[in-house]
Write a protein that binds this DNA or RNA. Structure first.
Length: 308
DNA sequence: AAACAAACCAACCGCCTAAGC
DNA sequence: TGCTTAGGCGGTTGGTTTGTT
């Protein structure tokens, strides 16, 4: 069936770039009256524009709280991290970067960040390692990456749950139910199973089954997992961005290739690593009631470990 | 200086969802 | 309950700018 176009059948509507005069009309009208119903705004404001066009122009360009200018390395890093969790949900990502619009972030991703990930041999959609970089076969992680992929998928589910939960928080009676639903969801996932297995293993191998002190941290041993690659990617970004994309790619790739040969031995500890992160993920989730989880990456043990 | 290519980004298009009737 | 519609979102396009030969 499809939705009826809001206004494209109307004759005489202007399309294409906005003129300063149109911008001024829109700004003055909204400042005076608020946008109210977007459908009636063009007529009331004296604009020969479709309502969608007006809304888009306002939200993506004219809004006073829009932050113009280049993205900082921190912002770029955050976008990469959030994309790894949320996927192409630009609006959700934008909500974590005040003053930035979904369109802006989408453009940033499509023109810069995606290419950098590809250069690093990372599939920008799945954030999984791909098999080649610049035609060269790259070392692929074995089981560890699989675990991390599962972990990341779980994190994505969690983030989506958080997004849903945010709206449910307004309905007190649903909070308890939704909390348990999310936890149950994670618990029943493969990650939850890994977590339970981890506990079993730790009971025999360690005195304190769910103690952080019990797990060794191997953040420095980049075995090619996506979280670690994200760090590698973030390096040149944080170091100041005067390099060209190509130069960034080369330096980043060399960083990947410079991983000491013995680093893959980390695989013996991968279950610990993965499960430790999972544990923290669950603990963080239990203790988190709003989107600050996504806003502050330090809450993610994954990131805090990586970024340390 | 001109031609071409690549990069950038504003804007459009169409689908989805939720609210209202 | 089902239909209509406004608003919102993500994908894509195409015009403009910048860089390279």
């Amino acid at each position: 069936m499809g939705r009826t176009p809001c206004c494209d059948k109307k004759m005489g509507l202007i399309k294409g770039p906005w003129t300063p005069e149109e911008d001024e009309k829109l700004i003055q009208y909204i400042n005076k009256n608020g946008h109210g119903s977007w459908r009636h705004l063009p007529k009331n404001a004296g604009l020969l524009r479709c309502s969608k066009s007006c809304r888009l122009r306002w939200t993506n360009y004219l809004r006073p709280d829009i932050k113009r200018g280049p993205f900082s390395p921190e912002d770029e890093k955050l976008v990469i991290q959030l994309h790894g969790i949320l996927g192409n949900r630009w609006a959700a990502i934008a909500s974590q970067l005040p003053g930035r619009t979904d369109n802006e972030i989408k453009n940033l991703w499509n023109t810069h960040l995606k290419k950098r990930l590809i250069c690093l041999g990372i599939d920008p959609q799945t954030h999984e390692p791909s098999s080649t970089v610049n035609g060269l076969l790259k070392r692929l992680p074995a089981n560890p990456s699989t675990r991390h992929m599962v972990q990341w998928e779980s994190a994505r589910l969690e983030a989506e749950a958080c997004l849903s939960k945010e709206s449910l928080l307004l309905v007190p009676s649903s909070i308890e139910k939704s909390n348990s639903d999310y936890i149950l969801r994670i618990w029943n996932s493969e990650v939850g199973e890994a977590f339970r297995n981890f506990n079993k293993n730790q009971e025999t191998a360690c005195q304190s089954p769910v103690s952080h002190a019990c797990s060794s941290t191997k953040c420095g041993s980049a075995s090619g997992t996506i979280t670690e690659r994200s760090l590698i990617l973030a390096g040149p970004l944080a170091a100041g961005d005067n390099q060209t994309d190509d130069a960034e790619c080369k330096s980043s790739i060399s960083a990947v290739e410079d991983v000491p040969p013995g680093s893959d031995s980390a695989s013996s500890n991968d279950l610990e690593d993965s499960s430790e992160s999972l544990l923290q993920l669950l603990l963080d989730f239990l203790g988190t009631n709003d989107m600050s989880l996504l806003g502050n990456t330090d809450n993610y043990s994954l990131y805090s470990a990586i970024l340390s």
